[in-house]
């Protein structure tokens, strides 16, 4: 555990808490992509199956349980409790265009051809693109509430901080996982446009709106 990894995990935790609180406090999931949230639930479920087979640390296990529970809680709020507020007209990204290539890639490029390993690889690849329906929704409506922007910033920062963690681990621990690193770079690059808008607009007190 190094400072980048810890900061990344805290950013990740903060993101899921911001999202749950936003929906709970406003009693609305307007502006949030249910499709991205569904993909994240699939990501956590397939990645953290090793909770049952491999113990790393209390910290590791608790965080895994929290991420799985939070993702299902978010889905429950969006698709059940506050279903009426779900903006499905703007949430139209075709997730099969992500799921099919990601499945194929996980079967082709993995560390080991075993069920758990392929599911882990699948989750890493899927996570890297899971935010696309949400970014697509923001670009379609042309704006995002500030709280949604904070959520996206925290979620994007998490993998960017993991990149620093991987650089640190490469130099100081000789650790290098090309699958995680390449997917992490892709994931972070997808947020770059958003990061730019967040820093130039939201942090200056303006609403995140895209030029028409």
């Amino acid at each position: 555990m190094n400072i980048f990894r810890l900061a990344g995990d805290i950013a990740h935790l903060l993101a899921v808490i911001i999202l749950l609180l936003k929906i709970w406090k406003s009693r609305s999931c307007a502006g949030i992509s249910g499709r991205s949230q569904l993909l994240f639930a699939i990501v956590y479920t397939t990645r953290y199956l090793d909770l049952l087979t491999n113990f790393v640390s209390i910290y590791n296990s608790v965080m895994k349980v929290v991420f799985i529970a939070a993702s299902y809680a978010t889905l429950y709020l969006m698709y059940m409790k506050f279903k009426a507020t779900y903006d499905h007209n703007h949430d139209t990204f075709r997730i099969e265009f992500l799921l099919i290539p990601v499945t194929a890639l996980a079967l082709l490029v993995n560390h080991e051809f075993s069920v758990l390993e392929i599911l882990w690889t699948f989750s890493i690849y899927l996570e890297s693109v899971a935010i696309l329906p949400q970014l697509f929704m923001v670009s379609k409506t042309g704006e995002a509430e500030s709280i949604t922007s904070h959520y996206l910033f925290a979620l994007g920062s998490y993998r960017a901080l993991y990149l620093l963690n991987w650089i640190y681990r490469y130099y100081f621990e000789g650790f290098f996982d090309p699958i995680a690193v390449v997917a992490g770079v892709v994931q972070t690059v997808l947020y770059c446009d958003f990061f730019y808008l967040y820093i130039t607009k939201v942090l200056k007190g303006k609403k995140l709106s895209l030029p028409a």
Partner: peptide, 10 residues
């Protein structure tokens, strides 16, 4: 190659 199969990260 390090311990890539351990997946100690989140």
């Amino acid at each position: 190659y390090g311990n890539e199969h351990e997946h100690d990260e989140l």
